[in-house]
Amino acid sequence: MAVVFKKSSMLTDLPTHYCPGCTHGIIHRLVAEVCEELNVGNKNIIGVAPVGCAVFAYNYFNCDMMEAAHGRAPAVATGIKRAHPDKIVFTYQGDGDLASIGAAEIVHAAARGEKITTIFVNNAIYGMTGGQMAPTSLVGQVTTTSPYGRQAESAGYPVKVSEMLSQLDGPAYIERVSVHSVPGIIAAKRAIKKAFAAQQEGKGFSLIEVLSTCPTNWGLTPKESLKWLEDNMIPQFPLGVYKEV
């Protein structure tokens, strides 16, 4: 008998603080496995954690990590990659971090073709701060700051990051995936692998947008959350490859 599924060495032993059923944990595992399979060794990978639920990612990824100010991970990663062009550099960010306060940073890192990889976890809500509306919240979605449902009239429409960034010439690979199902998870890993490969080959900027759940702040069970994602988020945020150089 051989071990066919085991925790990656790119994850530390620390149990995560994420809520039961939150798919952040799955995405952490996928990033860790892909990094491990790059065979460059943990010492040659540097990650940047955001401010958000994943702020403690610097305790979970077993490589050199930096904690960035809210929204600034792509800038921090730029500084790192310029200092260590030979290292693999990634940012792991949520939708408030990337699409709201950090919108300028991600746009310009992409436009510069910064040779970093961004894992963008889109769960259409602010998790850590208790369920406020995010730029990716759906029209009509009830959150603590859109108690009557997101009103397009006053709060506008969801930001489509993958579509937006794919208009730029700097990105080499952009794909939107989802971890709401096992096939989705398998496809997500493949996409993350391609993104890191694009970085390794020096092709330019890469970003994988991962649709993810937030059972606690969506007010749904873990299982219902996967269904809600499939029925509501995927139509708003179509999966697929948006840029491939």
């Binding site: 540097i46 960035a68 600034r72 800038a75 921090v76 500084g79 790192i80 200092a83 260590h84 300028a104």
Partner: peptide
């Protein structure tokens, strides 16, 4: 963004 790039390079 500039000061955060400095943060990244300094941390590196």
């Amino acid at each position: 963004s500039a000061i955060n790039m400095v943060y990244g390079a300094a941390g590196a």
